[in-house]
Amino acid sequence: MSPLPDPVPPLPDPVPPLSPRPVPSAPQFPHPYPFDPAYGYSLADLLRVPAPVAPGDFDGFWEGRYREARAVDTAPVVGEPEGEWDGARVFAVAYGSVGGERIGGWLVLPAEGVPVEHGFVVGHGYGGRGEPGRDLPLPLPGAAALLPCVRGLGTRSTRPAIPGDADGHVLHGIASRERYVIGGCVADLWCAASALLDLVPALDRPGGPRIGYLGESFGGGLGALALPWDDRFAAAQLTVPTFGNHPLRLTLTCTGSGESVRRHHRTHPEVVDVLRYFDAATAATRLRTPTLVAPALFDPAVPPPGQFAVYNALAGPRELRVLTAGHFEHDGTEDEYRELVAARRDFFARHLG
């Protein structure tokens, strides 16, 4: 894959935001935090947050990581059925990834007798993944999916050498761009796609596979980093994505993994040289895959300016679904989630159907 020019200007929005309801203004919820989870930004402010300029070898770095992942023989192994969720059959699965890692997770298949028509890789948040129920049902009927627990996280990919908590995990190997755990987690998503296509060959159609990606929070940031280099993905949906605009994130107090990085930076300022390669907003300037982003106006765990930086930077067709709050329960949480599920279903029907 040839490098894209630096920087890549975003294309105009092909459609207006999906929601018929008015876009919410920055809310002020009663909260226990010693800081403002809206960070003083209005929606207009958030829609102007830029992406940092990429290092000169940004494309080469990620293209090399992608080639390494595609060369892995994932050798997926499927376990016994673990039950059914929302009409889908769920199986334990393990597959190979870079560095000789075996990644655990779940394979989701349609009900017996229903042909596979769509495929998804589904990332998870920094809380890990203990079971697949929260990520089901999948956006489209007749869908198969691989739900990995990326290295060091979840119930199926814990490692003695990798901290299993978000604060420790996000710092693991951060002194080196080659050893930073986030790069390995991105590779785990690429290898998940390879394993899914090995297990469900019906997805590899003439002209190549067209699978979707879903990712929330940590999984949203990983998706933004992974998707620009992998043309097997034809559409993506990112909810409250993390890792956007690290230079700005380092100035913003939060309750999520970004706070661990911010504190580490105080005594290790040189870490900015590594973080430049793992900026989801910078990667989004290379992302031409149609992408629906659901950033929040108020979020104590993932500062909204970083979330919107990912959306603002997208180089391909993009759609926006503004949430009132992320990582924070409020009276409208369930209604907004139902609306997002419906918007997601419509989005993937148009781009994968």
Score class of each variant (00 low, 15 high):
140 L>H: 11
149 C>S: 15
135 D>L: 14
340 L>N: 02
212 G>S: 03
231 D>S: 15
127 G>E: 11
285 T>W: 01
146 L>T: 02
254 C>Y: 00
101 E>G: 00
33 Y>Q: 14
329 E>M: 05
296 A>Q: 05
138 L>V: 11
341 V>H: 13
262 R>F: 08
86 D>M: 03
234 A>L: 08
130 G>Q: 07
190 W>T: 10
9 P>W: 08
327 H>C: 08
207 G>P: 03
105 G>N: 01
15 V>I: 04
218 F>N: 12
131 E>V: 04
215 G>E: 11
43 L>Y: 11
42 S>H: 09
25 S>Y: 01
39 Y>L: 02
140 L>D: 08
42 S>E: 10
211 I>N: 12
9 P>D: 10
182 I>T: 14
288 R>Y: 01
105 G>V: 01
235 A>L: 06
170 V>F: 09
236 A>Y: 05
248 L>R: 13
182 I>D: 00
157 S>I: 13
30 P>L: 05
353 G>F: 06
223 G>P: 01
291 T>I: 01
19 S>Q: 13
189 L>K: 01
294 A>V: 05
199 L>A: 04
84 E>H: 06
210 R>Y: 05
168 G>R: 01
231 D>Q: 15
324 T>N: 00
14 P>K: 08
14 P>M: 07
325 A>F: 01
315 A>R: 04
154 G>L: 02
85 W>E: 15
245 N>T: 05
35 F>E: 13
298 F>E: 02
129 R>K: 15
210 R>S: 06
312 N>R: 11
287 L>Q: 02
224 A>P: 12
279 D>H: 03
215 G>W: 06
209 P>V: 05
218 F>C: 08
169 H>E: 01
201 P>Y: 11
